[in-house]
Design a protein around this nucleic acid. Structure first.
Lengths: 353, 353
DNA sequence: GAATTTTACTGGAACGTTCCAGGTATCTTT
DNA sequence: AAAGATACCTGGAACGTTCCAGTAAAATTC
């Protein structure tokens, strides 16, 4: 092994080592080196070790691009697009996907769409060019079926998560939004609440309508009226929660309970309540959705609806892999169960779970 | 939309279209198609349009792998490794990097190391195989210089962010931790506090020592003693903040102010204080670090130290690009300014800023 | 010890691009 | 009308792998 070849500091002059270089160094053919890299048992141990030493010596780094080029379409890359990095629930989801990918030997390429179509399209286009083998995607509002269709027809299977594009027939993994919020609302009703608001969410996104539906179900089955003013869609977030509480308090007949689209919005309501001297859990019942890590640490601890982020990752990844290896499998729509987690913010006796 | 169509077209039988297919469809050579893709003005408009139509018709997707293989080392991929997706400040950083990459036409490959060496090594190895053109990395605790050195010598420039491996001479973009915490501590001292604790942080990470140093600076310049029990390193996070407050309250002489390693820890202290009936901003002063989006919404609003996450992204990306295009540029260590943001949690009159 | 099988390795085509060195028309110039 | 210039297009080598078909040597069989 030539000592001055690989360690010269000047990167610009020094090409990265290739199979060929390793082969030369080890005095074998590049085919043999390739076999070693693939752990092929055909290679004599003595040769294998010689090659491994040369790999080390040359600082060789496997070139997956070249390999993938040869091996037709295969690629260990999975494109994962969520709505945002800074939304805690999305961050949890990403984290789960990373772990699942790691355990399957896949490499996730993750990006956010920032809820914007153009950003979403730029990333998807770019990932297609990098030949990911499929997509996991939380579609931005107003994503069109025809666009998804184009992706699919270009040879990239995809699985929608968390939301789905209306009338799309593509595989999807969706939370049981309707049941979750129905249970939550029933819980409030069982505690005697009648004037219950549903706040937060984006009307352009499917999950909003499902959660709203669950709320409506529970209200109507209890024979409770839902004045228009009780439903306040507003983009989720803490600041919105603060604002929404003030709106609700301005009503002549005061609401006694609030079902929130998300935990984040519930946090905002909690924070504003404290400032206004309203005691949540006594004067006002608040219920969230997501069960973020922080929700057991708020004061009062937040009653909320939990949908395991791991389940999204495991199901979506599994479904995508099925579509990658066999284009004939039918599109499935999987629903992740939602579970009511009773804590203190509704004033109910706390369950042990 | 054909209801059974998107299920049927057998991807396994249908190869993705290549330059060659497009060329055939358009009745030109693949070289011409390549020229069109590169917007080369040599091509007659008529031909260009014919080719573009064929691209559309065949559903052709550019293959960046093949292109990069030909064009030697170049690649539009940047590997970005942070410590965690679920830490809010890291999420903000990732978001900024994504925006910067987008604006430069680069494609970020992002992953987290989960503060673990093995996960970090797996991702870096994988990204090297995918021939990213460089790395932005927030090194996990106990990352070794020799490992970084190996990456660098394999031809991948890297820039450390937020933390740096001790004695490493690689480029780095670091917050002005020492000054930030020094200012914060001085602020508390100027308000009359003397018994001030410094809590949180991981002793295995460089930023801890810098922030601790800032605290020590301020204490000693004011002639204040720092009993050992006033410094409580503990892995950051809300739960830790709750716990740490109880420890501090157990001391015979009570601490009147707490400098926290992070906002997250401060949130824990805020939440536990509320439960214990301690009024932060009056009975106890608390100061954070990070200025998360939520920190202006807590009650009381958190006094903290802000380090613009955008600045990390902009500086690190710029430095990395310099190293990518010219291996001779010297390693620079850039410091991002830290700014004290005075809000309510220390009981100080609130500045307007 | 000749024929056969097994073991361990190798040469080279192929993957889908880029880009250079040409190659034809067509257009100018004289 | 010949020569040169220009505009537009093309063939083919190269990038770093994989993998098939093949080869040479060693081991086994008869």
């Amino acid at each position: 092994m030539n000592p001055n070849n690989w360690n010269v500091p000047d990167k610009s002059l020094r090409k990265q080592a290739t199979l060929h270089d390793v082969a030369q160094d080890a005095g074998v053919s590049k085919s043999t080196v390739s076999l070693v890299l693939q752990d092929n048992p055909q290679v004599k141990d003595q040769t294998r070790e010689k090659v491994l030493r040369s790999i080390e010596a040359t600082g060789y780094v496997y070139n997956r691009k070249a390999a993938a080029l040869r091996q037709a379409q295969s690629s260990d890359l999975i494109g994962i697009l969520v709505n945002s990095f800074v939304t805690p629930y999305s961050a949890e989801i990403l984290n789960c996907f990373e772990q699942v990918a790691l355990s399957k030997g896949l490499v996730p390429m993750m990006a956010s769409n920032g809820e914007q179509l153009d950003q979403q399209e730029r990333f998807i286009k770019s990932y297609m060019e990098h030949k990911v083998s499929g997509f996991i995607i939380c579609p931005a509002p107003n994503t069109s079926v025809s666009w998804l269709d184009k992706i699919w027809r270009s040879g990239f299977p995809l699985v929608q998560i968390m939301r789905e594009v209306p009338f799309s027939q593509f595989p999807a993994v969706i939370a049981d939004n309707r049941n979750g919020v129905r249970e939550a609302t029933r819980h409030l009703i069982s505690l005697g609440h009648q004037k219950i608001a549903f706040v937060g969410g984006d009307e352009a996104i499917s999950d909003y309508h499902e959660r709203l539906g669950g709320y409506m179900d529970a209200m109507s089955e209890a024979g409770l009226s839902v004045p228009e003013a009780y439903v306040l869609p507003i983009s989720q977030g803490r600041a919105a929660g603060r604002q929404v509480l003030q709106t609700l308090l301005s009503y002549k007949t005061r609401v006694t309970a609030i079902v929130c689209f998300s935990d984040l919005m519930a946090y905002g309501i909690l924070s504003m309540s404290r400032e206004l001297g309203i005691e949540v859990g006594k004067d006002l019942a608040v219920i969230g959705f997501d069960d973020l890590a922080d929700s057991s640490l708020t004061h009062p601890a937040l009653t909320t609806v939990r949908v395991q982020p791991e389940d999204f990752a495991i199901s979506a990844m599994e479904m995508l892999q099925n579509h990658i290896q066999n284009s004939q499998v039918p599109a499935e729509r999987r629903v992740i169960p939602a579970k009511l987690i009773v804590r203190e913010s509704c004033g109910a006796p706390q369950n042990i779970n």
